[in-house]
Design a protein around this nucleic acid. Sequence first.
DNA 1: TAGTGGTCTAGACCACGCT
DNA 2: GCGTGGTCTAGACCACTAC
Lengths: 249, 249
Amino acid sequence: MTLKLADMAEEQNGGRMEAIHQALLRRIEQGEIAASGRLPAERLLCEHYATHRVTMHEVLLRLEAEGRIYREGRRGWFVSPPRFRYDPLGRGHFERSVREQGRQPHTQLLDATMVEPPPLVRHMMQWPEGAPMLRIRRLRSIDRRPVLYVEHYLDAERLPGLLQHDLSVSLTELYRAVYGLTYGYLRFNITPAALPAEAAQPLRAARGSPALLIARLNHARDGVTRDCDLEYWRHDAVLVEVESREMPL
Amino acid sequence: MTLKLADMAEEQNGGRMEAIHQALLRRIEQGEIAASGRLPAERLLCEHYATHRVTMHEVLLRLEAEGRIYREGRRGWFVSPPRFRYDPLGRGHFERSVREQGRQPHTQLLDATMVEPPPLVRHMMQWPEGAPMLRIRRLRSIDRRPVLYVEHYLDAERLPGLLQHDLSVSLTELYRAVYGLTYGYLRFNITPAALPAEAAQPLRAARGSPALLIARLNHARDGVTRDCDLEYWRHDAVLVEVESREMPL
DNA sequence: TAGTGGTCTAGACCACGCT
DNA sequence: GCGTGGTCTAGACCACTAC
């Protein structure tokens, strides 16, 4: 009863991992396990597919790399929900665009403190060494699943009294409404990365999990650098979508 | 002589994997092993760090996930060279922009045949089911390392005699020079993915290796869909960089 | 043919999550 | 306290690469 080896034999490359991988994938794709549904425990899967835990674990890691499943803390493995479509050129409307995609957004303020910015930020913003910036850290969720950890760096002196406001809403909106600030152009870059410890913890992800790092540099209308975001996305949760709005060259 | 455990003990989380990970990372960052340089064989590393091969292998996989090292075929592990900075909005100038970054580009035509496009492409281009398209497959390298596998899909009827030309140069250039075609806007999306078999083989990568999938949809000036690219990048080799060139909103 | 990474089994203990 | 994933050792064979 353990398994139809017939199904598995047909795979081209043989190898138990490959066969189990395909079998599990089929079960996920056919909706046998619903999105956000939990997979059976590793030990149960081992029994079912008559294999060792190490092998099983590697299969699961591969499915994770493909963005089909994810894990949270040590609570188990879950089927990945559809990706959130995200356009980094359209600004500051996380909550709205999540809702437009028929899903439930949530934003949580982690903290807001003065810190020395990390080298990447200092370089992007051409910030003098040793000078502190205001860092706002937030955690954003979709359908109760934390998917995005953001560090927002900005020049505190330009935004007096910012900390008195509710920082769990759109910061862009806040800048506009309270300080009358609007944006000019922006630049962003995307790197596949692994989650650093600070990001992994609030995201309830394993250290070293695959992630997508999006660094955004915002400019004010006068061309002066305004602020900078470091966004760590769970890699299975997002699909970046960009459209050129003018005729190039 | 095997290892200074003192160095390793200081790590916060303990765990041999974590310690070995840090130790190797330090060696890489300090340039003890040059970019594109080869790491010692896994078995040697095991000896040096007094651990088992499975553990060592997992450490190496983690460094791979972080984009610090990569492997080719079964030839060994290598230190990742700096990432190629790539702007998907600037078109068809792979060779030129690689050279601008002081590196050596190379493009190899794999094949060009009529096929039924995969579902993703058919959907993006709103192509009728069952109708064939011309598929051009190419492999692109930087400094002799294959980093990008591209499938280019296009409407063969609009480009008669295309196959008579040299398909290892810029296709955009070819369209313009030979057919007088210029582009309007384009759309692209980016997904972290795992390499499918077709892509893994020419890239000399292990099946299931992490990758970045960029799907680009090109439109002609009249707004008609022109063609579509599926680009599979080795995930450690690229950094996507986009700048908004106009004032949003 | 020797050396490399890739896979696999067996068995064990640890750390965290939940209740 | 029990169940979950996370890590670790031991030992083995396979598949591909380079020579």
